[in-house]
C-alpha cells in the first residue's frame, strides 16, 4: 500500500457554453493539475463538457441534513413570492 492516499476532488463540468458548471462526481488525484487531467478522462470521454472545475473535497462545507427544517421550512409559508399568488383580471392581458 502506498504511504499516502491521493486526496479526493469534486468535479464540476460546464456541459455547453452558456450553462452553469454542474457537479458530476469525484475522483482522486495528487494535485489540481492532475485532477483536471483525470476529470477529462473520467467524465468527458464523449464530449460532455467545454470547461472543468475541480475543488478539493475537504474544502467543501455542506449543510447538515438535520438542519434541513431550520434552513428550508421558512420558505414554505411565503406563497406571495410566486407570481401565481396574485389574481390579475383577464382584461389586463398577459402579465
Amino acid at each position: 500500500m502506498s504511504k499516502k492516499e491521493w486526496p479526493l476532488w469534486e468535479v464540476f463540468i460546464r456541459g455547453q457554453h452558456g450553462l452553469n458548471h454542474r457537479h458530476v462526481g469525484s475522483l482522486h488525484a495528487p494535485d489540481a493539475e492532475m485532477a483536471i487531467n483525470h476529470a477529462r478522462d473520467v467524465y468527458t470521454r464523449r464530449k460532455e463538457g467545454v470547461s472543468i472545475w475541480v475543488v478539493p473535497s475537504a474544502q467543501i462545507t455542506a449543510s447538515s441534513p438535520s438542519e434541513k427544517g431550520a434552513l428550508f421550512d421558512p420558505a414554505e409559508s411565503k406563497v406571495y413570492r410566486h407570481p401565481t399568488f396574485y389574481d390579475i383580471p383577464d382584461e389586463v392581458g398577459h402579465m
Binding site: S2, K4, P30, D31, M34
Partner: peptide, 16 residues
C-alpha cells in the same frame, strides 16, 4: 505503480 503514485504525491507536496 506504487513508486509512481508516491512520486506524484511527493511532487505535489513539494509544489505546495
Amino acid at each position: 505503480g506504487e513508486w509512481f503514485r508516491d512520486g506524484l504525491t511527493a511532487y505535489a507536496e513539494k509544489q505546495a
